[in-house]
Nucleic acid binder design. Structure first.
Length: 807
DNA sequence: CAGTGAGCGAGCTTCCGCTTGACTT
């Protein structure tokens, strides 16, 4: 019989705490929330003051029954969930679900997982804070009301299975609005002038003119002026200013996601799962946190590490404070649990992420970097504009010796000519310089950048929308709903003008070209994303407002402090909200966004773009109903039926042009005949393809294939390639055993009884797949069958079909 | 790999935040 049962949220935490508390305590985990609103239906009794209808979450039934058993046996049950709104609710739900009497229940919170902190907590128990719990109930009920009233509206008005919510709908809106900014962006151009100058001793440096010219003429005139005989270049003022840089705060979930994306190329969810493994191995502190707080223990350990590695001079104690409004530090920042451990992790990903966390943590306890920035002006005798040269010298590297935070900037592209950083030769006012080559380059204003996963998370955090535990799932949701796609887009070629004034004085004009606007792994809205956002923004402006969450959070805080009744707060929100839902329900049958692109010159028919039942499409000709209404004729003839074509990847209803739309109707194209059968090219669900004799062969877009231009010759080549691959598909067949060794997309595999089995890479490194004996194959199959025993039969399925309504 | 929005017609989809597994193509 155990005297004490302690319940925490996370099993990894339970293990650590059990060690500290000793054998009079059993420490168990609730694995997060154990009760929630019933899965089905609204499960809120609005008439009874928004009374929630709770159930034990289906996946927690086992956990709860075990905890119940243990709590019955224990004398005292310590509820040690996190010290925040959600944690308090978990404690309350536990108390309710386990039917714990006040007399044997203690609510405690840990601020750190150290012996002192835990013993201190045990000595200072309290009861569950009902106000804080009510704040959580208000949050939970409001989210359910919003989500479960808006989503069905979308099913009826737009498309089944769509969703809307306080967090996801605003997240999509951010991406949609950024895309609109990009669409409306009017790029201006200008000329920037960079010149080389030589000191009397021959030292050369670069300097940029302090004026940017609007036109080529102005830039040309300037270059002509300064190339005239007798023009003198003199060093004007020289200024040296000390400056310093400060290390970034230790990682929170959001900053870890951003930095892992920039430095390691991880996706947001990848970062979280790698961090989870490090956490479970006891190597780092909890990875879902918005706190930058470091424990005194960690600060002390970091000091020792810095002193040992770089010397005491490099150390500076810094305590970071979290500016978040909740101001409750339920967790620490993300840091190594043991700073003395320089390397950790079993996979390369784990090691790299650990290294990043280690460096960031230790650097946060290091001295400022000290710099000296020198700016020199160069005066031109016959013009009022001045050149400016700047150089930056690090006089003391401080924390930079270990770590520097990356930035997501695309502005650096304009700074690649070397005028700026680095060292300047020592110069004094009045020194006469020799002009070297001077170049005026046409540049273009930068359009706003598209969001990456990480930059989106950053923005969400700034707006106070979502929580550390929801950033990654929110991104998955909006992608799975088809509101957003994450993909690469090719850039476009852009020409620009360069005027080069040689040292000798000859002026030359050249045209160069560059690729611009290419995007990698960025988030783009889909037509559905835009349609739904516009619809919601029109009818539910309050909820789509970027400050909606901040506003309701303020009210939740008031509830937590006991100054506001949670049912009252919900009533005040719900009445107008529900009225808007009712109003929207009564309006238009379907929400459509149709664009008339123009008239097809060949047929004289109208061309439209809109989102149809199966996704974005273009339409040639009016629908019979619309046409007959217009003409007052009741019999629409066959040729009046409109033609339809789906948009290609990357095309949008909002931006497609008449020319692009007309091109879509040229498919399917007949290329000619091969082996007596016609070959056609078109675009299907899986991209562009050619079809021959009932068989489909995908075009290789990466190799430049295009359904509009592909030739019969190329099509035949692709058909033959596919036939060749088919022939090579079968490596070995044991017919009697129903075992085949086949060549697949990921290399050789075994097919048996309708299921596929892997051949380990380590084995393939040593052996040809064809040489595997029947016994070896049987062993591999048996091995993988027992491994998968008890689990549901494997089914392949496609998740997150980005465009199109098909499931 | 096709289709482009309706009364014959079942039943379903959906929110946000706390947690970890069981899935591998």
């Amino acid at each position: 019989m155990q005297e004490n049962l302690v319940i925490v949220e996370s099993p990894a935490k339970a293990k650590t705490i059990e060690k500290i508390l000793g054998d009079k305590y059993t420490v168990k985990s609730s694995y997060g929330h154990i009760r929630d609103l019933k899965k089905k239906g609204l499960s809120i009794d609005i008439a009874k003051g928004f009374e929630p209808e709770y159930e034990i979450s289906p996946d927690k039934v086992k956990v709860v029954s075990e905890l119940k058993k243990l709590s019955k046996e224990a004398q005292t049950v310590w509820l040690a969930s996190d010290e925040d709104r959600e944690g308090e609710a978990i404690a309350w739900h536990l108390k309710e679900a386990l039917q714990l009497p006040d007399s044997k229940t203690r609510r405690i919170v840990f601020h750190e997982i150290t012996q002192n902190a835990i013993l201190h907590a045990v000595e200072n128990p309290r009861q569950v804070d009902r106000n804080l719990v009510n704040a959580q109930q208000a949050r939970r009920v409001l989210d359910r009301l919003v989500g479960f009233e808006l989503s069905p509206l979308l099913w009826r008005k737009v498309r089944p299975s769509l969703s809307a919510g306080r967090v996801q709908s605003v997240t999509v809106r951010l991406i949609v609005e950024r895309e609109r900014e990009i669409m409306n962006f009017e790029g201006s151009d200008y000329y920037r002038v960079v010149g080389e100058f030589a000191m009397p001793d021959g030292a050369v440096f670069k300097a940029e003119l302090n004026t940017r010219f609007k036109t080529e003429e102005e830039a040309g005139r300037f270059l002509a002026d300064i190339s005239a005989a007798g023009v003198v270049f003199t060093v004007g003022s020289v200024e040296t200013k000390p400056s310093k840089r400060t290390p970034a705060a230790p990682f929170t979930t959001s900053t870890l996601q951003q930095e892992a994306a920039r430095k390691l190329g991880f996706s947001v969810s990848q970062t979280m799962s790698v961090a989870q493994r490090l956490y479970e191995a006891g190597l780092i502190t909890y990875m879902r946190t918005d706190s930058v707080h470091l424990s005194s223990l960690a600060i002390g350990a970091a000091e020792e590490a810095v002193a040992a590695l770089f010397g005491e001079k490099y150390h500076k104690t810094r305590q970071y404070t979290t500016k978040s409004k909740g101001a409750q530090e339920a967790h620490e920042a993300i840091r190594p649990t043991d700073i003395d451990r320089r390397e950790a992790g079993t996979t390369a990903q784990e090691r790299r992420l650990y290294d990043l966390i280690w460096k960031r943590t230790v650097a946060s306890q290091m001295a400022d970097a000290e710099l000296e920035k020198t700016t020199a002006q160069i005066v031109v005798s016959n013009r009022s504009e001045k050149f400016a040269a700047s150089g930056e010298v690090i006089t003391f590297d401080g924390f930079l010796r270990l770590y520097m935070e990356s930035r997501d900037d695309e502005v650096s592209a304009a700074k690649t000519d070397g005028s700026g950083d680095g060292l300047l030769p020592a110069m004094t006012e009045g020194t006469v310089l020799t002009r070297g080559q001077t170049v005026a380059t046409q540049r273009f204003a930068q359009r706003p950048p598209r969001y990456s996963e990480a930059s989106l998370v950053k923005h969400l955090e700034e707006l106070g929308i979502g929580r550390p535990s929801t950033y990654a799932p929110t991104i998955s949701t909006i992608i799975n709903r088809g509101y957003v796609v994450k993909e690469d887009r090719d850039g476009v070629k852009r020409d620009y003008t360069v005027l080069t004034l040689s040292k000798a004085g000859g002026l030359k004009r050249t045209r160069k070209s560059e690729m611009t606007g290419a995007e990698k792994n960025k988030l783009f809205p889909t037509d559905i994303g835009m349609l739904v956002t516009d619809y919601l923004a029109e009818h539910f402006a309050a909820i789509l407002d970027y400050n909606f969450t901040a506003r309701v959070e303020k009210e939740f805080d008031e509830i937590a402090e006991g100054g506001l009744d949670w049912r009252r707060m919900l009533a005040a929100f719900y009445a107008p909200f529900h009225e808007h839902v009712d109003n929207a329900e009564g309006e238009t049958e379907y929400v459509r966004s149709e664009r008339l692109l123009g008239v097809d010159p060949k047929t004289g028919k109208n061309v439209y773009a809109r989102v149809g039942k199966f996704g974005p499409m273009v339409q040639l000709g009016d629908t019979p109903a619309a046409a007959s209404k217009a003409k007052e004729s009741s019999e629409p003839s066959e040729d009046e039926k409109p033609r339809y074509a789906s948009l290609l990847k990357g095309q949008m209803v909002a931006t497609i042009t008449l020319e692009e739309a007309l091109a879509l109707f040229e498919l399917p194209r007949e290329l000619g005949e091969y082996e007596g059968k016609t070959v056609t090219a078109a675009v299907g669900r899986f991209g562009p393809y050619v079809k021959h004799d009932g068989k489909f062969v995908s075009l290789k877009v990466r190799e430049g294939d295009d359904p509009y231009t592909v030739t019969l010759e190329r099509a035949v080549q692709l058909i033959e390639e596919k036939r060749e691959a088919e022939r090579n598909r079968v490596i070995r067949v044991y017919e009697a055993e129903d075992i085949q060794v086949l060549n697949g997309r990921w290399g050789p595999y075994i097919a048996h009884g309708g299921t596929n089995y892997k051949i380990p890479k380590t084995l393939l490194a040593k052996r040809e797949a064809a040489s595997l004996t029947l016994e070896e194959l049987r062993a591999l199959i048996a091995e993988q069958q027992t491994a998968g025993e008890g689990t549901a039969p494997k089914r392949t399925f496609r998740r997150g079909v980005a465009r199109g309504a098909k499931k």
